[in-house]
Write a protein that binds this DNA or RNA. Structure first.
Lengths: 358, 358
DNA sequence: ATTAGCTGCTAATGCGTATTAGCAGCATTG
DNA sequence: CAATGCTGCTAATACGCATTAGCAGCTAAT
């Protein structure tokens, strides 16, 4: 072992009595210099490698060759700290699984932002390039950064649908998303099928793509209902999320809505609890639908009617797509996965007395 | 942007009308060439950087400088796939949190083993060196690899106590562990305090350090009890883990043990269920103690008497220790964290009828 | 006998950065 | 006026590897 402590190809070369280039050729083997290196020499080099336990420095390798079979994972919010854990974990599961299968390591870009403040991709210590490509997670993206990414030639795939850059006809963003539009519409249809006509909605109608999509799926079910007598009606819309339970519940009741759709599970949990504590039956007196959740139900005891966002599968597909971009240089495309409806216990038939009201 | 697509310091240099070296000096700023570069030039370079959005290639940086503020995380088992998730997640939380605080990114070494089989650190595509140092997780370590790591100069810290290499007086392994010995002994003392004298133990007495430690803590409580009349007695020891519920339960009952210690929560869960289904009261007829668990209780409904292994804290401390090794070149040491007892509902006073038996 | 072709290897170069030695040009000093 | 010191920069090199051009030495073909 040379002075630096670290073993290099030069050391192996000296031991085996060949040149550094030969060592490299033996290592990268077969393909390139097939037949060009006799077994005798090859064996001598491999012996030296075995005896010293030499392993090539991946950094130098990457430096020379360009790729290193590492996938970056960038999250706009810290992925682990407990609040976010349940949200991110399924994504990480899926990414890790696929990365492992495809023989990639994972680089979690967790680094603290250089200039205190928001996390940024194009930070001054941008480490992205360390990886061959990168999966991007997060509820809300920085559009400017996304634009730069799309314009650049660095392979990436977003998890979650993303609007094209620069309007509907703009440059598409490679992503794997969930079909919130269809899933939400289906929930509304189920509510209508049980006689509900006055609906409440708690959650934003604009902002992140996932919010817009849910709202779109929700709103789409009104158009064709207008014509029918006693058509479906939006009784209340609370765009703010994370409000207090009682005020929310009161507003809902006052609006005459018989079913309320929440974009946030947390809101549903507290309103559900508040309702029950006031001796309101769920779904007897008020039905509750949550627009998306993942498998591990929150510990609230209530099994909400909702649909499950296939987070793991999204992550798997995104990782696959990324690897294709890297390996085949493909452009990446847009993929939307269906969400499975979850029956749950909180969507019931409309209360008879409410039915008379109409 | 030059041909390759990727922007380099040479490009910036050309734009700003200086040499590549100057660009590097401006980037690494202040310290080295303080005063050596006039503001005018500095500004010109920075302007070029700003306008092009140049960011230094971290690979080349690492190549030249040696460090890149990346911590590796190596796990002998896949970290995410759901079975392991609950075990590894708290560690990852702690590592990520600390890494983020200290300004490191995380490299998850998930790569599939090159030669199908067990995961190995010294694989032929050893990627460890990509990171400045590495945290190693896993229940059971490969001693040969550990030995090599200790002998080498690559900074690492193990999570979980590890025996010194080559016997008690051998080279110590840097680690952050949990004090299973003390925590287990405390559990036994609590059982004794409630009158239990015939104990059963389900779990290995050798193998991984964590197993040995638990057994040692357990066994240590017998020595001083021998002298007393009606001293504590090991009524049954089932070294195999993951057995069938009924045979286990029967063996325990047959042995006359009034309390059983499990190393595996999973075993406790099924035996507990089996007991209850046979109308045996827990802890009325049989007390159950689980030797270690983490915070999120399993969904079995039963709150077992146990102690909590501070996994997150272990991970935090390990990460800190690793960073110290990297930055200060310190050797790393051995740290054992206490486990908090968890009262739970499954350790009760001995049954009167059993008391008479003695 | 000359050429051509093959084999087995090596020298040289590039990847993008950090770093060091040192070169001009100018000001100050002796 | 020469010697010295300082300022502002650059040339050169190292990092460890992959890769290419190409050199010797030999054999086979012309």
């Amino acid at each position: 072992m040379a002075k630096g402590g670290r073993l290099t190809q030069r050391d192996i070369a000296r031991i085996a009595g060949v040149s550094q280039a030969t060592v490299s050729l033996v290592l990268n083997d077969a393909k390139a210099a097939a037949g060009r290196i006799p077994d005798e020499t090859r064996e001598r080099v491999q012996k030296a490698i075995r005896e010293t336990g030499y392993v090539a420095d991946p950094i130098a390798r990457r430096m020379a060759k360009g790729l290193n079979r590492i996938l970056g994972v960038f999250t706009y919010e810290p992925a682990f700290p407990s609040a976010q854990a349940d949200f991110f974990a399924p994504f990480l599961f899926g990414i890790e699984e696929t990365a492992q299968t495809l023989g990639y390591d994972l680089l979690l870009l967790t680094g603290a932002p250089a200039n205190r403040g928001k996390r940024k991709i194009f930070d001054e210590n941008n480490r992205l390039r360390l990886a061959d490509g990168c999966v991007i997670l997060g509820r809300e993206f920085d559009r400017a950064e996304l634009k730069r990414l799309v314009a650049g030639d660095y392979p990436f795939v977003a998890v979650g649908r993303r609007d094209p850059i620069g309007g509907p006809t703009g440059a598409p963003v490679p992503y794997v998303g969930a079909d919130y539009v269809a899933a939400t519409a289906e929930m509304v249809r189920r509510a209508k099928a049980r006689g509900h006509t006055k609906l409440a909605y708690v959650g934003p109608s604009k902002g992140a793509e996932s919010s817009v999509d849910r709202w779109e799926g929700f709103a789409s079910e009104f158009a064709d209902a207008e014509t029918a007598p006693g058509g479906t009606e939006l009784a209340l819309h609370i765009p703010e999320v994370g409000g207090k339970a009682l005020p929310m519940l009161e507003a809902i009741r006052a609006s005459g809505a018989t079913v309320v759709f929440f974009t946030e599970m947390a809101d549903a949990v507290i309103v559900d609890a508040a309702a029950r504590s006031q001796n309101l039956a769920v779904p007897g007196d008020l039905s509750i639908v949550v627009l998306g959740s993942h498998l591990r139900p929150m510990q609230s005891g209530t099994r909400f009617t909702t649909f499950s966002v296939p987070r793991e599968e999204m992550a798997r597909r995104a990782t696959q797509m990324l690897c294709e971009r890297i390996e085949a240089g493909s452009a990446g495309d847009q993929l939307v996965l269906p969400c499975e409806p979850v029956e749950g216990d909180t969507l019931g038939a409309i209360h008879p007395s409410d039915r008379l009201d109409t």
